[in-house]
């Protein structure tokens, strides 16, 4: 009985962390589905989001109003994303750039190096720790830290909002169309350049939301986005690039595998299980669980 309780606890905690991972992964896969590029600086937008959150709640708003700070951080990072997309990534689609993949990879990797080191220069290599968002709660058999609970609920809420937005609104349908056929959307008279900017903005805002939600848990420091990026990338490969449902399911799966791997095998390798899962998926289904098979023209 005791054992069963323990397993239930681990399963539940795996699902909780899985939902949070999924939010980050959905941001990455969303940008990919529209722009067909991987944003390697996702972790840095996560980091910027967490810094904004920290300074907003410690300065302007006060620790009690963290729920106001989260949308503000998301908005600010989203605007930054739109600006950077216009400045650096637009040339991928305007003009005659060869090897777009390569361009996007190099530019976003450089952006990541830039922001990560800039954060050290501006704020120092220190860790800031915001106060917990909420008092500890009991979730069935699982005692949960308040911040983790908030991050779980917040992530689930944002995922639901995002899903509804994509499925129900005009903009969401336009974005779905762009994901399926960029040329087709243009013939329907939709400004694709604008859609790209919006998609990039929304994607990095989701990363910022993850950063803001996890700020009390992962703390606020220049490299705090690294873990979430690792998980995010693992999830999108497992779930299949460009598939939002795939990302959510793969997020939960990764959370479960890590959590159960911790009790069944060893906690030291917690972060390696995701990779093992990824390799297994890649060998069996290189296009991911829910991704589309590459069509050879």
């Amino acid at each position: 009985m005791d054992n069963l309780n323990l397993i239930a606890q681990y399963v539940l905690s795996g699902l909780v962390i899985g939902v949070i991972y999924a939010l980050m992964a959905v941001g990455i896969t969303f940008i990919y589905s529209i722009m067909k590029m991987i944003n390697w600086s996702m972790g840095e937008f996560f980091m910027i989001g967490s810094y904004l959150q920290f300074f907003l709640i410690m300065g302007l708003l006060g620790p009690g109003r963290w729920y106001l700070a989260i949308p503000l951080s998301m908005l600010a990072v989203g605007v930054l994303g739109v600006f950077l997309q216009r400045l650096l990534l637009r040339p991928m689609f305007v003009g005659t750039l060869e090897r777009r993949d390569e361009y996007a990879t190099i530019v976003t990797i450089s952006l990541s190096v830039f922001f990560r080191n800039l954060a050290v220069v501006v704020f120092g290599p220190y860790q800031f720790s915001p106060p917990d968002y909420f008092r500890p709660v009991q979730l069935g058999p699982l005692p949960l830290n308040g911040s983790r609970f908030v991050a779980f609920i917040g992530s689930a809420l944002l995922l639901a909002l995002f899903y509804l937005g994509v499925k129900r609104t005009w903009l969401g349908r336009a974005l779905q169309g762009a994901a399926q056929n960029r040329l087709g959307v243009q013939t329907a008279g939709i400004d694709l350049q604008r859609l790209d900017q919006i998609a990039f903005g929304i994607g990095v805002a989701l990363a910022a939301a993850t950063g803001a939600l996890l700020a009390p848990i992962l703390l606020v420091h220049p490299e705090n986005g690294a873990i979430a990026t690792v998980k995010g990338f693992e999830i999108i490969v497992i779930g299949g690039l460009g598939s939002i449902t795939g990302s959510i399911i793969a997020g939960l799966l990764l959370g479960l595998v890590e959590s159960l791997g911790t009790i069944v095998l060893s906690p030291a390798y917690r972060d390696v299980y995701g990779f093992a899962l990824l390799i297994a998926i890649l060998v069996l289904r290189p296009w991911g669980l829910f991704g589309e098979r590459e069509r050879v023209a």
Partner: peptide
């Protein structure tokens, strides 16, 4: 494909 390769090799290095 190009992007999967970058992601998989990167995951290999991290692991």
């Amino acid at each position: 494909r190009a992007i999967y390769l970058a992601l998989a090799t990167w995951a290999f290095a991290e692991s």
